[in-house]
Every structure is written in structure tokens, then in C-alpha cells.
């Protein structure tokens, strides 16, 4: 656990990614808010659409970064239990994203965002990060992993209006379905990822 924290802390990319998350989310929300006539909860949270992308990158890099450098062999030699490694990675990423997400939603709260909505947004970002950790463990390569995660997030809402049964797609897709379904996606990805690590 502490080892994973040290790794994340010392990788220069991580801090940048979280900073980009905050900037992109706040900037997009502000831009949309300025253009919209009413600045409701949904509009305020539209920045999360873009802000989830760097969070996903962070989640992917925590795993696939080790694959590209071969560090994964060292990690697994030190801690042979695959489940422990995956749980530690997921937990560290989740905590870091949660802390940054909370800090970010404080800005939102100052702008009139309601507390439950802000809490949902933070939970959403945390689950996206965990999902990315899982997907990266499944496919190993970072480009393919991030492509899969972003495809999983962005494509269903675009394609839903054009398929035969849009309701089904929206209720199953991680981005539109709501937090319980997203949790299922994240846990599922983590489990498959852990199995793939063996």
C-alpha cells in the first residue's frame, strides 16, 4: 500500500493529470454555464464529461506504466498476491482522486452546487479511475486501455439514439446509467484484471 503510494507520488505525470482534471472540469463548466440561460446542477457538472478523461489516464497509467517499463515483474515478485497488488493500486488511485475531486467540488459548492450532486460527481470520478485500473490490467497496453475506457464512456451516448433499443444502451452504459451500474462496471473490470494478472 505504501509502496503504491510512493510510486504514484514520485511519478511526475500523476500530479499534472490531476491538475488538468481540475482545470478542464472547472473551465468547461464555467464556459457552458456562461452560455446557458439557467445554470442548474446538470449544467454545472457538464465539466465532468471532459474532466473524467485525465482521471481515466491516471488509472490506466498506474497499471500499464509498470508494464511498459517492466516494473510489474518487480512488483509481483515483491508481493506475489495479485489481488493485493490490484486492491492496493485501486485504493491508492481512488483515495487520490477522491481528495482532488473533493477539493474541486468545493469550488462547485461555492458556485451554488448542491452537496448530494457534488458527492455523486466525486464518487463518479473515483469509480472511473478504478474502472480504468481494471481495464488496464486486462489489456496491459496503455494506448489500447485508454482507447477502451474512453470508448466505453463516450460512445454509448453518441450511438444510443441510433440503435434499435436506446433505453437498454443508456441503462447499461457506464456514463449514463448511474452510480450503481458504474460500480458494477468498475468491480467487474477489477476482477477480470486481477484474474488476467495471474
Amino acid at each position: 500500500m505504501r509502496a503504491e503510494w510512493t510510486k504514484l507520488r514520485t511519478t511526475p505525470g500523476a500530479a499534472w493529470l490531476l491538475l488538468v482534471t481540475v482545470i478542464v472540469t472547472v473551465a468547461l463548466s464555467a464556459a457552458v454555464c456562461a452560455a446557458a440561460t439557467t445554470c442548474g446542477t446538470k449544467v454545472l457538472l457538464s465539466g465532468v464529461y471532459a474532466g473524467q478523461a485525465p482521471v481515466a489516464v491516471l488509472g490506466v497509467l498506474v497499471v500499464s506504466g509498470e508494464y511498459s517499463t517492466g516494473l510489474i515483474h518487480t512488483t509481483l515478485a515483491a508481493v506475489p498476491s495479485r489481488a493485493t497488488v490490484m486492491a492496493a493500486k485501486a485504493l491508492v488511485v481512488a483515495v487520490v482522486v477522491a481528495v482532488f475531486g473533493t477539493a474541486m467540488s468545493l469550488v462547485g459548492l461555492a458556485e451554488g452546487l448542491e452537496l448530494p450532486a457534488a458527492a455523486r460527481a466525486v464518487t463518479y470520478l473515483v469509480l472511473i479511475a478504478v474502472l480504468s485500473v481494471g481495464v488496464a490490467a486486462v489489456v496491459h497496453d496503455s494506448a489500447v486501455a485508454i482507447g477502451s475506457v474512453l470508448g466505453l464512456l463516450y460512445l454509448p451516448p453518441i450511438l444510443a439514439p441510433l440503435v434499435a433499443n436506446p433505453r437498454v444502451v443508456e441503462e447499461l452504459a457506464p456514463m449514463t446509467a448511474g452510480l450503481p451500474v458504474l460500480t458494477a462496471w468498475s468491480i467487474g473490470a477489477l476482477l477480470v484484471g486481477t484474474l488476467r494478472l495471474r
Binding site: 485525465p54 496503455s142 494506448a143 486501455a145 485508454i146 482507447g147 474512453l150
Partner: peptide, 10 residues
């Protein structure tokens, strides 16, 4: 790879 793919997709 990861940052580049994300940038272009976004």
C-alpha cells in the same frame, strides 16, 4: 500513448 490517445479522443 495514454495521454496522446486521450488528447485526440477528447
Amino acid at each position: 500513448s495514454a495521454t496522446a490517445v486521450t488528447t485526440v479522443v477528447v
